[in-house]
Structures are given as C-alpha cells and as structure tokens.
C-alpha cells in the first residue's frame, strides 16, 4: 500500500538532524531537521507557518504551493535541503489581515472561497505568475493554475479575483 507515495529519496536509517539556515519571508530562520524533510513540514511544524497546506504529499494538488526564488513550488515534494541559499515566500509573507496583498484583497472582494483549503496555494501560484508576467491572458492564468486543485468548485470566482488583481496591479505601477 502506498508505495507510490514514498517521499523523495527517503532513507529509512537516516537520523542525522542538522542545523539548517533558511531564508523565509525575508528573514533568516534556523531549524534543526534532517535534510530530506519535506519543506512543507518544516514550514508548518518548525516555523509554525500553517498557510501552506498538506493535500497529497505528491506534488499533485498544489495546496502546499510556496514561492522559491520567484517560482511556484509544491513544498510537500521538495526536501528542505533543496532550498538552502534560496528565498522562500509563503502566504504569510505577502500580506496579513492589516495589509492585504492585492491578490488576498481580490479573493475577499470576489468572495473567492468556500472551504478555502486551496486558497493559499492558489494565491501563491498566482503571485508567481503575476510577478513574472504582470498582464497574463485568461489562458495563461488558467494554465498557471493547472496543478492547483479546488474541490469546492470556486474556480470562476478565483479566476475573477486574479483577473482583477492583475488589473489593480497594472494600475498601481
């Protein structure tokens, strides 16, 4: 059962925890973990950043999406050692309830949520897209979210929110 769900390069006997220095949301963070630990577990359990969600552990659903050096990355499927020396951004790093990121604001304005479990991963995937391509087409937005699943069926509201954030972002420049 579950052989397909093996974590990458898992080594059953490995027990060497080490001090790892990460750059998360613009701050230096030191954690003690084995270097094969999925980034997601380090973010959630060591750094208490709960915004990236566990969905599949296989990089198939996008609930755990964070940005690493500008690219959307599924953090469940990446060992923490792979982000050493890189810049990691999570949903907590782009805005909070006092100062919402335009995408977060747009999700609220368009009521783009039901259960909300997919939302932070989708916002991060959308942010990576807009950072690289400030005026994506509808097709480009949809394609950028092709690996982010939403089970409640909130797709159209999410697309509307991202389109409006795209427009707002252009206005701000």
């Amino acid at each position: 059962m579950g052989t397909r769900a093996e974590p990458p390069a898992a080594h059953p006997e490995r027990r060497d925890c080490m001090q790892l220095t990460l750059n998360v949301n613009g701050a230096k963070r030191v954690v003690e973990a084995e270097d094969e630990t999925p980034l997601l577990y380090v973010l959630r359990n060591d750094l208490k950043l709960k915004g990236a969600r566990f969905g599949c552990g296989l990089g198939q659903c996008g609930a755990c999406t964070v940005i690493v050096d500008g690219a959307a990355v599924q953090s469940c499927d990446v060992p923490v050692s792979a982000v050493l020396g890189k810049s990691v951004t999570t949903i907590e790093g782009i805005g909070d309830d006092k100062r919402l990121h335009p995408l977060q604001q747009a999700f609220i304005e368009h009521q783009a949520g039901q259960c909300g479990y997919c939302a932070s991963g989708i916002i991060m995937a959308a942010k990576a897209l807009l950072d690289a391509n400030p005026a994506p087409s509808e097709g480009e937005i949809r394609k950028a979210l092709a690996r982010n699943l939403c089970r409640c069926g909130t797709h159209q509201r999410i697309l509307r929110a991202i389109r409006s954030a795209r427009v707002a972002g252009e206005g701000a420049r």
């Binding site: 950043l49 709960k50 915004g51 990236a52 999570t90 949903i91 907590e92 805005g95 909070d96 309830d97 919402l100 977060q104 999700f107 609220i108 009521q111 949520g113 909300g116 479990y117 939302a119 932070s120 916002i123």
Partner: peptide, 9 residues
C-alpha cells in the same frame, strides 16, 4: 471565515 483563509492564519 475568508480573511483568515486567504492570509494563512
């Protein structure tokens, strides 16, 4: 419930 869900609280 949405503000918390889109900010990662």
């Amino acid at each position: 419930d949405l503000p918390a869900k889109v900010t990662g609280i």
